[in-house]
Nucleic acid binder design. Structure first.
Lengths: 146, 146
DNA sequence: GTAATACCTAAACCTGACTTTAGGTCAAGG
DNA sequence: CCTTGACCTAAAGTCAGGTTTAGGTATTAC
């Protein structure tokens, strides 16, 4: 069993964040002795999971739901899986969007490289969108696809 | 020349957002006739660029900077290019992080699929991290790599 | 015995990107 | 004439995810 300060050190998180997570219901099993939080293995594991779920872009209230389901037992396996499936689909489309934004950035870098060489944007502007060199054409099209 | 309401319709944005963008300095060249905003080609182009830059995760204050550079002329090409290069690097690392989070989600989906089949987590828990089947091992390792 | 720590709470504050509200101007329509 | 609708402003409100502050308790250190 660990105190909040020890856990904060272990995870490199501010104490205030742990208290905030607790208040948001992210540790449904957390125990206390005379008012003081006692973090056990369950909570350490929960924190590892929280770090993952946050990376996956999940909101606190969804993470709480997940933690509650974990505390409820095997009957919630399907709900938990469904939550991850939904997240997975969401992330896949986010990544696709970001890759398009990335191609837009690649295009802009190329564009300004040309403009710097020419001293103006006239020539490079005239190439858009139909006379782009092969090397950049596909990037441009990907970036502007809807 | 268009009014704010017409532009809002064209871009599918609330009027309030356009006024907000203006207040944030995103249209440095915007003109007015007796107090009323007049959006011209420069502003429509700016809005297209703003949509791109927002997709690339840029903050309003950086977009403002960019717009100011655009208004300043060719001497700012290198700054503009550098901004896009920096954004590009940032996005690439974000995408890499998201792909790792995605592998974590794939792993969790697989994990709960096993748990549902078994009715408990005992067997699948025991497989982690050294006895995972080939099909999932790489995903697990990618997800947990630092 | 008192000062420094580590813990506790409730409540206020912060940031970013907007949105909403309250109050005002001006032109056109009935 | 007066209401409707499009425009304007400044200022306050909203949301998430924390952080900070103010005030209190309990243990240990000198």
């Amino acid at each position: 069993m660990y105190t909040i300060g020890q856990v904060a050190d272990m995870f490199g998180l501010p104490v205030s964040t742990l208290r905030y997570y607790d208040k948001q219901g992210l540790f449904p099993e957390l125990e206390r002795t005379s008012g003081i939080r006692r973090f056990g293995d369950t909570e350490l594991e929960a924190l590892r999971v929280i770090e993952c779920l946050k990376k996956a872009g999940m909101e606190i209230k969804d993470i709480r739901l997940f933690m509650e389901w974990c505390a409820e037992g095997p009957s919630t396996y399907p709900k938990r899986k469904a939550m991850f499936e939904e997240r997975k689909a969401h992330m896949e489309s986010e990544i696709a969007n970001m890759n398009r934004a990335l191609d837009m950035l690649r295009f802009k870098c190329w564009y300004y490289e040309q403009a710097i060489q020419d001293g103006n944007e006239d020539r490079v502007k005239a190439l858009i969108p139909d006379n782009l060199p092969e090397e950049i054409k596909e990037i441009y099209e990907n970036a502007h696809a809807r």
